[in-house]
């Protein structure tokens, strides 16, 4: 039996008559990266929002590290060690970069001085240290993505949900992000990675699930997915 840090079982999410996520089931094994791909509107972000509690699901279960967290509040799910980034960066615009990084660890027993040192180290890992006193709103779009990643580093979660981390990021910043993701994986972190950038997702993922119209149409290794006729049809049409 696989040691899954995240198990999603029969998850359903409806918006009125639209079924955005339909009976989706998959696992994220501990220490691995599971990629989630699909065309626009396939339900990837909705699924991620159901996993971390932003959306209430209409059916199914979300189990995090053995705890049934279905429809729990996002901060309760985060407290189990689930961090995430967003498709469009959602940083705290009127807070400095250091303050941005303090947010996920406000409940920590460490002193503010220790946390500030940690925040500076995390910013350094994504090359944002020189801007630590600037407000979030003063960063470029790519730098905001890096800040989100640094926030995840600071949080040090066991499971990381990355929603389109490479979208709108230039190749050099993208390289930094990939390096950090690989380093975190070496440190034993698990990932659910949603991306349109197939090159990156194929490079990083241990397993891939393909979502189409709210349903998983294929799951497996990169090689399996690349040659799956259903996936090719979903992406390229008949």
């Amino acid at each position: 039996m696989t040691d899954a840090i995240l198990s999603v079982d029969g998850l359903v999410k409806r918006f009125g008559g639209l079924v955005a996520v339909n009976e989706v089931s998959f696992d994220v094994p501990r220490g691995l990266i599971v990629g989630l791909i699909g065309i626009n509107g396939a339900g990837k972000t909705t699924l991620m929002n159901c996993v971390n509690g932003i959306y209430h699901s209409d059916g199914g279960r979300v189990v995090v590290d053995g705890h049934d967290m279905t429809n729990h509040k996002p901060h309760e799910i985060a407290s189990l060690g689930v961090g995430r980034t967003f498709q469009i960066p959602r940083i705290f615009h009127r807070m400095t970069l250091i303050e941005n990084l303090m947010v996920p660890v406000l409940g920590s027993e460490k002193s503010d001085a220790e946390l500030t040192d940690m925040a500076e180290a995390c910013l350094d890992r994504v090359d944002l240290y020189p801007l630590r006193g600037n407000n979030g709103e003063e960063l470029s779009g790519g730098q905001q993505k890096l800040l989100e990643l640094a926030r995840v580093l600071m949080f040090d979660p066991a499971l990381i949900l990355l929603d389109e981390p490479f979208a709108g990021v230039n190749p050099s910043l993208c390289r930094i992000m990939i390096q950090q993701i690989e380093k975190m994986k070496q440190d034993g972190k698990s990932f659910l990675l949603v991306s349109h950038d197939l090159t990156s997702i194929y490079r990083l993922s241990d397993q891939i699930s393909v979502l189409n119209q709210g349903e998983i149409i294929a799951s497996g290794t990169v090689e399996t997915i690349q040659s799956d006729p259903a996936v090719i049809e979903a992406y390229l049409g008949n």
Binding site: I91, R94, F155
Partner: peptide, 24 residues
């Protein structure tokens, strides 16, 4: 204070703050 930082995060983006563990 840490409460002040939590409040500023809520002001800027309550949903993101909650996703990062802040009890909004």
């Amino acid at each position: 204070s840490r409460l002040g930082k939590a409040l500023k995060a809520i002001r800027d983006d309550a949903e993101a703050a909650e996703a990062l563990g802040v009890n909004v």
